[in-house]
Amino acid sequence: MTERLLIVYTALAALATAVLFAALCVAKLRARRRSGRDAVLRSKYLRILMLYLLSGEGPVPRFPLIRRAGARRLLAETVAGLTGVTCGLDVAPLRRVVAEYGLDRWLLGCIRRTSGCRRARGLMLLARLPLDGAVAARAARYARSRNRRVRFQVLMVQLSADPSMALRLMAEYPAPFSACEVGEILILLRRGMLPIAYGPLVESPCRNLRVVGLSIVRQFGIEEAERHLLRIVDGDEAPELGREALYTLCALRRPLTRRHVGRRLTAMSPAERKALMRYMAAEGYSPGLLRRLFDARERTYCESLVQSYKRSLA
């Protein structure tokens, strides 16, 4: 019996080794192709795209070797890479390229065949292409995916396909945005795809919209939002929102008074208060203000922090 088990095990292990070895060879060949042919082709595609963008009109250019394996993905990555690092591009020529070569449909097919983070990466690529509503509607089938990253990338596809619906789409998103997800939305905003009007976002009762609004205020240094921020800090909002608003005020280096932030400070845990003290000391807040904000027990910590930024005269 043991002998038979050994034979079965040996056969299975040999098969697994062969499969892994074949996969390793394919990966090595692919890596070699990537550093050779693909690098040259990507450079060529980018050049053709940029020339087409500069000319602005005319027939869609021909891309060499587009029927070869992996070339269509290269073109999609080049278009997505270009739109990802630039803003204010004329999307009409890019849209024509995407439509002519069917990049969006082809990517949707690839996305269907993958799963998990690979699917999320496909959707991210799709979100960076100039899209129409039909493609976004087809991508919406993954909105109920078990993978959180996939669900969020579906939202990004919908946002880039129809920015006018941004507020509704973000408000209806079923899960709270994580910090990194907010970061991705802000990159989309900086590409000029979403409106920067922070007011409706910060005043909205929806948690997700508020978080995005607060991030806009912090990233663009909008000091006029101080009133809104103080209201959130002083109000009964969720602890994380109040904390975010308080940090935003500190990032803007606005003067803080015990009257406005006292309640929020009391609600914070000692560790959170210490983290805030470190943040404020690094931002250059005066020891006098820190002394007024924090209790006598925490003053020693506060003062030693501020001292550590002062030049020693001894």
């Binding site: 990507r42 450079s43 980018l46 050049r47 940029m50 890479g81 270009l82 690092v85 630039t86």
Partner: peptide, 10 residues
Amino acid sequence: EFLCDVIRLS
């Protein structure tokens, strides 16, 4: 290399 190419071509 990609970013370098984008800026160079622009």
